[in-house]
Design a protein around this nucleic acid. Structure first.
Lengths: 224, 224
DNA sequence: CTCCTTTTGTTGAAAATTCAACATACATTG
DNA sequence: CAATGTATGTTGAATTTTCAACAAAAGGAG
């Protein structure tokens, strides 16, 4: 079985851990690999998890059933992304989603308690991994906070302007290119695509923004 | 100056740390107290923070200005709640909010790097605090995820049903009391209060739920 | 360049939300 | 228990979103 060291090194959990420390580290935290066939269930909704999964090969899908029994796909992950960290680290270890391998996949599992318990040999990279884990969870936190700030606005126009305003602030300029096409932006803002197009046109006509495809310019009435 | 040990002990960061360890712990992580008068600014938007603030006395307000220059209050915190942890722990240390003392307050600051760097005397409670911090950030993550799952639905009815469905699942029963009054629930769901009342009435008439004030019963068509 | 596909913009009708105003129920207190 | 204030329910009008269908533009392949 391939050891996937190259992939593991790219995972946020192993960020800034020197190559030659990765193998000892894995031993130290008792990480283990597991293979899943296409369609195989990795975790079912309601499972209690103490382990973080890192996708080494293949693809996994997080999905969930709503009150009406409809399944919705939340996200698809590939190497070297990880899943389960929020739940494994929280007090509520019950995961609220199904996690399914949608391709033949290899997953690396690492136990959170083993990460947190500094090992007997007090390895320096152990502390680095704890800090990486905390950073990863905190980063996600910020992403979610931002999304809530934007989508909690009531109209398409307000959502869009809030999004553009925050983007401009991040970039530090009133002119920037976004990473979404129209449909993805509509999905992110939780609005209708055609309604979004209408709103962008309006803002352009009103002279508040300029827009060419993914490139936006904030012209006035926006306080950065 | 009061030492506020009783408050500190209640903070999530000091959860399960024995009383007699709190003082040594504070020394170990170089925690320090600071007083703020009513109206005084604790952090301004854009400040880089490396410290978590724990409210020991008084009240602090997190607020922010939108694209239109309007100020909106995000949350008010009192003892023993903490703030800044997501930013102090993340890669983006710039806080996006103003944090203001709205009463005469006392704040305990602890440096995240000092928490993460296991101290020379390798105190056992140090590890506990790291784990507490991680748990706190991960818990918030779950709260935010849930809120997004609910508010990303497009109609008041879907938001409400998703909320009730998740609540029922958490409680493990189809009958439960919620912690919100109508206005707070509307705020949480990001919908209009009167529209929410209309929807609750409809669902009752349709025989899908029963409701008396804060008490809800899911009757059918809800898959838990 | 042309054909074909994908993305984006536009339109109008239907559905849903918001808003303001008022009615009713509930709770508190003097 | 009357009076007052707060919370909740109801209504209709105005605004906004969604939805479906189509038009226009952009991009790629041959």
């Amino acid at each position: 079985m391939k050891n996937y060291l190259d992939v593991i090194k790219k995972s946020p959990l192993f960020h800034n851990i020197e190559d030659f420390n990765v193998i000892p580290m894995l031993g130290c935290i008792a990480g283990y690999k597991k293979s899943y066939e296409k369609g195989q269930i990795i975790f079912s909704e309601g499972d209690l998890i103490n382990e973080i999964g890192i996708v080494l090969k293949g693809k996994v899908e997080l999905s969930k059933y709503g009150y009406n029994g409809n399944k919705s796909i939340i996200v698809t992950l590939e190497a070297p992304q990880m899943f389960g960290e929020s739940y494994a680290c929280s007090e509520i270890k019950k995961i609220p989603v199904d996690i399914i391998s949608i391709e033949d996949s290899e997953i690396l599992f690492v136990n959170v308690e083993r990460i947190l318990k500094t090992c007997s040999n007090a390895c320096s990279f152990h502390n680095k991994m704890i800090s990486n884990l905390l950073t990863a969870v905190a980063n996600k936190n910020i992403v979610l906070n931002k999304k809530i700030e934007i989508t909690s606005k009531r109209t398409t126009r307000e959502k869009l302007l809030t999004y553009l305003f925050l983007k401009a602030k991040e970039e530090g300029k009133k002119q920037f290119t976004i990473e979404y096409d129209r449909q993805s932006l509509a999905d992110y803002l939780e609005v209708d695509r055609s309604g979004l197009s209408v709103e962008i046109s309006k803002l352009c006509k009103e002279g508040i923004i300029d827009n060419q495809k993914n490139h936006f310019i904030l012209k006035r009435n926006i306080y950065i």
